[in-house]
């Protein structure tokens, strides 16, 4: 292990890995290596201590029970809080996104979250399942968000965070806004391998994590075709 490597930690794949969540780690590693950046990927199970010195942390989706357990263990561990205080990057999807807030709903009760983002989640009237598209906060300089959501929660943002996107198709937080970000932390309801359809978002995370102002472009022909196809599929 070299300290020059980009270190990516996938937090608790034993608890938070519902549907292709591994994809985000694989995509970030592949896109970094394609630029000649050496990468170390680390999977930390829930019975291990979370290292606080990595560059980028990933949180995936999960069922109610594992989500509640993950919150409890992450709060007890404190590693993620120390990493965020050091300026590490966090990318969280679905249940992992809810975890970053002050509270979330699971198994019919409210649980304390990690309080890393000013937001709280409760239950919505119906499950949100389907394509999720939106216009991303212009300050991030990214093309539209394209993804798939599958969650029963609704998320209410406080003044300390900004929405990641304004919804054009789907539900996201509440039918209007989707996801949240502050500093180097991003959360989204676009679940599973969210970065597979959003390579520019993957590159933003890599730029934040490496401090590189610029990354040479990659051949994203297939991703572009996929994004276009999904855009056409949801067009009215």
């Amino acid at each position: 292990m070299s300290t020059e490597d980009l270190r990516i930690v996938w937090i608790y794949p034993d608890l938070l890995s519902t549907y292709g969540d591994r994809g985000n780690m694989l995509i970030l590693a592949a896109r970094a290596r394609a630029r000649g950046i050496p990468v170390e990927t680390i999977e930390i199970r829930s019975d291990q201590a979370l290292p606080d010195s990595a560059d980028l942390y990933l949180l995936g989706g999960g069922e109610d029970g594992p989500q509640a357990l993950a919150a409890q263990r992450l709060n007890a561990d404190g590693g993620l809080h120390r990493a965020v205080a050091r300026g590490s990057v966090v990318f969280a999807v679905c249940a992992g996104y809810q975890l970053l807030g002050t509270s979330f709903f699971a198994k019919g009760a409210a649980y304390p979250g990690l309080s890393l983002l000013d937001l709280q989640s409760d239950r919505g009237p119906a499950r949100a399942v389907g394509e999720l598209h939106g216009v991303i906060d212009p300050r991030l300089g990214l093309p539209p968000l394209s993804g798939f959501e599958n969650h029963g929660g609704r998320t209410h943002l406080g003044p300390g965070v900004s929405p990641l996107a304004q919804v054009t198709t789907g539900i996201g937080n509440d039918g209007t806004s989707e996801g949240a970000w502050r500093g180097n932390l991003i959360g989204t309801y676009s679940h599973g391998p969210a970065l597979s359809r959003n390579p520019a978002l993957a590159d933003l995370l890599l730029r934040w994590a490496t401090g590189a102002g610029y990354l040479p472009p990659l051949d994203d022909t297939w991703t572009d075709r996929l994004r276009h196809e999904r855009q056409v599929a949801v067009a009215p």
Partner: peptide, 9 residues
């Protein structure tokens, strides 16, 4: 199923 996320599993 309408979701293709599983491809990454």
């Amino acid at each position: 199923g309408l979701d293709t996320s599983w491809l990454f599993d």
